[in-house]
Computed example of a mutant assay.
Amino acid sequence: MSAAVDARQAGQRVEEVLDRLAATGDREVCAAAEELVRVLMDFYGAGLARVVDGVGEAALAPLLDDELVASLLALHHLNPEDVHTRIARALEAAADPLEPLGFDEATGVLTLRPRAAGGGCGCGSAADGAGRSVEDALACFAPEVTRVELAPAEPPQPALLQISTRPVTPAPVR
């Protein structure tokens, strides 16, 4: 079994290494490192594209829930699902009480709102702590999302109170 790999952490690590090389001031070394990353990305992307073509969409479907597989497919523009489906998958994976209101494909901005919970105050405090897990899931499933904006929660709707007449009870027979 392979070791667990976090796609976001791996990407951050590559950025850190490239930044360290850039900090040395040696432009040739930095350019060579960036070219190496591009060549490897192209190489692995081409191989992954062949795998996706070979197994077909039906065999690929069960793998789309895996964050690492989903992020690799998204990185190489190979995920067969549309962005809205992948956003929904990310929100489900994050298991946070947020619902999508809209996604602007031109700007990459996703607008979310805390889901109304029965008896909640509408203050959104649960959604405040949800941000990081949502961002991590979106980075894996829908990297097209470049920014998340939270809309205010809708105030909870009052419970419907049913009032009816009291049932008539017959007088006891004596």
Rank of each mutant, 00 (worst) to 15 (best):
L18G: 09
D19E: 13
D19T: 14
R20A: 14
L21N: 04
L21W: 01
A22C: 01
A22Y: 01
A23S: 14
T24W: 02
G25E: 07
G25N: 07
G25S: 07
G25H: 05
D26T: 05
D26E: 15
A31L: 12
E34Y: 00
E35Q: 15
L36M: 12
L36W: 11
V37F: 08
V37H: 09
V37T: 04
V37C: 02
R38Q: 13
V39H: 12
L40M: 12
F43S: 12
F43G: 01
G45I: 08
G45A: 10
A46D: 14
G47K: 13
L48V: 11
A49I: 06
A49W: 06
R50S: 14
V51R: 00
G54M: 06
V55I: 15
G56Y: 09
A61E: 14
A61I: 04
A61D: 12
P62E: 05
P62H: 05
L63Y: 09
L63H: 15
L64H: 05
D65L: 02
D65I: 00
E67F: 11
L68V: 15
L68H: 10
A70I: 13
A70K: 06
L72G: 06
A74E: 15
A74V: 01
L75K: 06
H76P: 02
H77N: 13
H77V: 03
L78M: 06
P80M: 06
D82T: 07
H84T: 14
T85Y: 00
R86M: 12
R86K: 10
R86W: 05
I87Y: 09
A90D: 03
L91Y: 02
A94Q: 03
A95T: 11
D96W: 00
D96S: 15
D96A: 15
L98R: 11
L98C: 14
P100R: 12
G102P: 05
E105W: 13
A106S: 11
G108I: 02
L110C: 10
L110T: 09
L112K: 13
R113I: 10
R113E: 00
R113D: 01
P114L: 04
R115L: 11
A116Q: 14
A116H: 00
A117P: 00
G118T: 14
G118F: 03
G120Y: 04
G120F: 10
C121I: 03
C121P: 00
C121F: 10
G124Y: 01
A126E: 05
G129Y: 09
A130I: 06
G131D: 02
G131F: 08
V134L: 11
V134W: 02
A137T: 13
